[in-house]
């Protein structure tokens, strides 16, 4: 099957999946108790029934649910994500506002964890059973098993409060009015703790995956053959083992990459990082339906796209893999 047909068929399937996801999301959100009008009335500290009704009419929540679904799907089909009356802004602009911070955080964490995870995994596999392997395995297991928010809070207490090395919350120093290189440095300074916290969890995951995968392949016949014909150990690991062991890691990385745009709710919350994960979580708590659906839609679109990209990467990493739709 050629590449163009493969892409076309996958894109059509992707659009169908997205529509199905949009409908399921819509239904799920409406199944939760409460609606934006009751939340807003609740926050105002007083309300009468007529007032809440007036809000519902304004938000279009008084119409039949199927009509609301129709309006929503029509909007999605034309890539119009709607308007948040609660925040008085279009959903697209709200999401766009949060995108840079989220991409910076999840992207950095992704790169750190992929590079570090593969390196540590390969190292552990080469020294299997020796102290270095044990150390890497134990540390990886520790980071894998420890709850993220606990690591986040502890890192704040150690590095911000006790050592005074790094800022504990935020995206940049508020009120400093920095620009250019100074601002970039300031943001990088703020990025360290959240990116490491988020990255360490995935590092552990990749390291474990890489190690297991490499050990499995190290026992394969062709590796024994290569060793027998005198391939140097370094080259053997790099070209014969690692190259083949990398496939499961690519699969996992594809999954993580799909979540890059979805943000990281826990990390963003604890570090007050102004990303999409928080936007989503706060919208959920406030039943800001349009924003929530918008974030869901954008993240699921990204998952579909990255899955496709992963499949294409397979072919690049391992030419033996055929494109099957």
């Amino acid at each position: 099957m050629n590449l163009a047909r493969f892409l076309a068929s996958r894109l059509v399937k992707g659009v169908l999946v997205l529509m199905a996801i949009a409908i399921v999301n819509f239904a799920l959100i409406r199944a939760a108790p409460g609606d934006p009008a009751t939340v807003m009335a609740g926050e105002a500290g007083a309300a009468d029934e007529a007032f809440v009704q007036q809000l519902r009419e304004r938000f279009g929540l008084d119409r039949p649910i199927l009509e609301q679904l129709g309006i929503y799907l029509k909007g999605v089909a034309t890539l119009d994500l709607g308007f948040s009356y609660r925040q008085g802004r279009s959903v697209a602009s709200l999401i766009a506002d949060r995108l840079p911070a989220t991409l910076l955080l999840t992207g950095t964490a992704f790169v750190i964890s992929l590079a570090l995870g593969m390196l540590l995994g390969a190292l552990a596999a080469r020294r299997v059973g020796r102290p270095a392997d044990t150390a890497i395995t134990v540390v990886a297991l520790l980071f894998y098993a420890t709850p993220l928010f606990w690591i986040a809070l502890m890192s704040q207490i150690v590095f911000s409060l006790k050592l005074g090395l790094l800022p504990n919350v935020g995206y940049e120093t508020i009120g400093a009015n920095l620009s250019g290189g100074d601002r970039a440095l300031d943001i990088a300074h703020h990025l360290v703790l959240p990116a490491l916290t988020l990255g360490l969890f995935f590092t552990a995951l990749y390291a474990r995956m890489m190690r297991a995968s490499m050990l499995e392949i190290a026992g394969a016949d062709y590796v024994r053959t290569a060793r027998a014909k005198g391939v140097a150990p370094g080259s053997l690991t790099r070209r014969h083992i690692a190259r083949n062991a990398i496939l499961p890691v690519v699969t996992l990385a594809g999954l993580q990459a799909g979540q890059i745009v979805g943000g990281a709710v826990l990390t963003e919350t604890v570090f007050a990082w102004p990303g999409i994960g928080r936007l989503m979580f706060e919208s959920l708590a406030q039943r800001d339906y349009q924003v929530l659906l918008g974030v869901f839609f954008v993240s699921s679109a990204m998952v579909v796209l990255f899955n496709l990209a992963t499949d294409l990467t397979y072919r690049f990493v391992d030419p033996r893999i055929q494109m099957g739709a």
Partner: peptide
Amino acid sequence: DEMYFQFIPDAASRAVAYETGK
């Protein structure tokens, strides 16, 4: 001259932000 109202969603992090002078 200026007022900044910061949004820090986690209560424990808010306390640390005060302690570190933010």
